[in-house]
């Protein structure tokens, strides 16, 4: 009985932290379940994917209502994240757990460094919207305007994503990462959309969140059908994550996130060290 409550409490903590720091929660749940509760790595990944879907679905609805997420861009990149997730979901059952733990340790170290340096990075300017500031004079419109390109179709107000091929490749990688390590992959997708594709940060964050649910679902299906998701662990943890994420969104305005971020960097660096030890056996 107590273990079930502890799982819910752990999920709650991960949900609060994830919500306050803009993370999906997977980066916290896998260490929580492996280091904290002694679960196998693959089993923890299966549970984490469910939790990631919960937080994504809950937040994505709000982002769409507020017209912050770019549904078109999300659907384009989802083709690649879902393909990556399918691939990763199959490969995950072939790799030794020590290799997965080593990969997770690298991801944690990368996340700690990114969070410590957050705010310094600047985005490359977005490509102008087609027609805006173009060389075609406004009083001399072409008789037969060209068909919109894919970049035009997925453009948003004031921006037109660039480097779609790089975006597709990065999304494929993010999908593989998500399936192998049980994370949402926002740590890859947000910088990819913002810095490489020139999508505004707020839109990139919301669109990444929208995509996470489908990406995680594609690999979670493989885990589920292969018996890789423990419902007894997933249930209490997912409920805790959901309640924690809601509490975190209400606390966000009252908490000094800078201090929290520094604390988080310390915790995550320590967890990276523990994961490295696990990988080394």
């Amino acid at each position: 009985m107590i273990v079930g409550l502890l799982l819910a409490a752990g999920g709650f903590g991960a949900g609060v932290f994830g919500s306050l720091l803009g993370l999906g929660g997977g980066i916290l749940i896998v260490p929580l379940l492996t280091v904290g509760f002694g679960l196998g790595f693959r089993e923890a990944v299966g549970v984490s994917l469910v939790c990631v879907i919960v937080t994504s679905s809950a937040a994505a609805g709000v982002f769409l209502e507020r017209h912050v997420a770019n549904l078109r861009l999300g659907m384009l990149l989802e083709v690649f994240t879902a393909s990556g997730a399918l691939l990763g979901g199959l490969v995950a059952f072939l790799l030794p757990e020590r290799v997965l733990a080593a990969l997770f340790a690298i991801l944690l170290a990368y996340t700690a460094i990114s969070m410590a340096r957050r705010g310094r990075a600047t985005a490359s300017p977005a490509a102008p919207l087609r027609g805006a500031g173009s060389s075609v004079p406004a009083d001399d419109p072409p008789d037969d305007p060209p068909a919109p390109t894919l970049a035009d179709v997925v453009a948003g107000p004031g921006y037109r994503p660039r480097h779609l091929v790089a975006g597709a490749g990065g999304s494929l990688g993010a999908g593989i990462l998500s399936a192998l390590l049980g994370v949402g992959g926002g740590i890859v997708k947000v910088p990819l959309m913002h810095l490489v594709m020139g999508v505004p940060l707020k839109v990139a964050t919301a669109t990444s969140n929208l995509m996470i649910g489908v990406t995680a679902a594609a690999s979670a299906v493989v885990y589920l059908l292969r018996g890789g998701i423990d419902p007894y662990v997933a249930g209490p943890t997912a409920v805790g994550v959901f309640v924690g994420a809601m509490a975190g969104s209400r606390l966000a305005a009252r908490i000094e996130v800078r201090v929290l971020r520094l604390l988080f960097v310390g915790v995550i660096a320590l967890t990276a060290a523990q994961m490295t030890l696990r990988a080394l056996g």
Partner: peptide
């Protein structure tokens, strides 16, 4: 109940698509 919850959660993003 846990399996039913998991099925609904996994299906939700797919129904969105």
């Amino acid at each position: 109940w846990l399996w039913a919850g998991l099925i609904v959660m996994l299906s939700t993003p797919l129904l969105r698509v």
